[in-house]
Design a protein around this nucleic acid. Structure first.
Lengths: 223, 223
DNA sequence: TTGTTAAGCGGAGGGTGCCTCCGTATCTTC
DNA sequence: GAAGATACGGAGGCACCCTCCGCTTAACAA
């Protein structure tokens, strides 16, 4: 699925990377995703190597530490999230776009639930990874947030970083079945809190309680 | 500090627990708190035993699994949080009381930062512990939330569980210095979202309390 | 006090997983 | 096809996990 784009850059002095090395690296990543998803972060690395069909030495050459392996797996996930935002950038209603990104995120996390503990650990020990994913996701969420703020729909005193962390935190704290709906509800509350609090604009998006409450005609969005 | 209250119940057939056993258990718990705080959940149990001045066998008799030990340590913390709510129950302004509990919580977490990964892991594998702490903390936060709702200050469609998870999630996602102020800001947003959205009552609590007019440029965590 | 006995103590030791090291195999290049 | 670079695999040393059991000590009775 994922290929190094500049695979032919071996012209400048460096050899082309060996085919078996590329293949093995890929195999290990794939195996790691499965094993960690099932067994959590404590899962044996030897099990990963076995499932990948490579020797333990090979695994360690590609990913010298357990954290390196987590990181590599995680980086892929982040890319996907980032692309998601790109698509939503063109939606009409900016508040709704933001809300939808947040919601899609929850879904995304749901499919990776087994890895949550692993990620929590990794995040804590690798500030590099934190920086990378913060950067990617912050930009994603930031572009959505900006539009809503520019449209006068949301307050401007909350940073994308903050919003992101709140989101991720909410997702990863749950284990019970049904956690998703709980998070979705919290997100709605949160988005409500983010809206500009002038009486005219303050309408809630939350399901039943405030459905048809659109109060007065909106004021002109001030820049 | 903590003594079994019914220590004299040995009248009914059972012996009184041995003094050295009680003492050792206490020592292990104390040592575990320190070791885990410093070294995370991966820390060696042998290190804990050593620090406690007991044999490894003794540690395992009291806490058969690593998770049991985490649990025991964690249960104490929860008790403290629970008591905190008790004290706040009598404050005048209910919204403010809730807000203050949330904030105190952040502070509390701050002092236990090293254990966060351990707790995340434990929480995920021990549904017993999850149930216990959920129960305790839910009641704590619930009593505060109820008052605010009853006073007509807050919407009633958010459960204490939800609120709790959002709080904890926010806290445990951070590692950077300065995370506290970020969480505090998010909490304010959140509480704003919780308020009833009628025009008269809905005014932001954050606007003035934070010097940031536009927080984003300021919050630039640079490696 | 002293004796009896249940309860608790500690650490040796077998097992598992982590990670390194290096002889061997395979790929790239010419 | 040959040479040289690169990667492979798994044996082995180490650290930690956890159990097991002979020894110690505290609680209770007389």
């Amino acid at each position: 699925m994922i290929y190094i784009t500049d695979m032919d850059d071996h012209t400048d002095q460096t050899r082309r990377p060996r085919a078996d090395a590329v293949r093995n690296r890929e195999r290990v990543l794939e195996a790691a995703k499965v094993v960690f998803s099932a067994g959590g972060p404590e899962a044996s690395l030897e099990a990963v190597a076995k499932r990948a069909g490579v020797g333990i030495g090979t695994l360690y050459r590609h990913f010298p530490t357990r954290e390196d392996l987590f990181e590599a797996v995680y980086r892929r996930e982040v890319e996907q999230l980032s692309e998601l935002a790109e698509q939503l950038k063109n939606a009409k209603d900016p508040v709704d776009a933001l809300r939808r990104w947040l919601r899609s995120n929850v879904e995304f996390v749901a499919t990776k639930k087994g890895m949550s503990a692993a990620l929590a650990l990794t995040f804590q020990s690798s500030s590099d990874l934190a920086a990378f994913s913060m950067d990617r996701l912050t930009k994603a969420i930031g572009s959505l947030l900006d539009r809503a703020v520019a449209a006068g729909e949301m307050r401007g005193d909350v940073s994308p970083e903050d919003l992101l962390r709140a989101l991720v935190g909410m997702c990863y704290m749950h284990d019970q079945p049904g956690w998703q709906s709980s998070v979705l509800r919290m997100l709605d509350v949160f988005v409500d809190g983010l809206r500009v609090q002038a009486g005219t604009k303050a309408k809630s998006h939350t399901a039943k309680s405030h459905t048809a409450k659109r109060a007065r005609p909106a004021v002109k969005p001030k820049r």
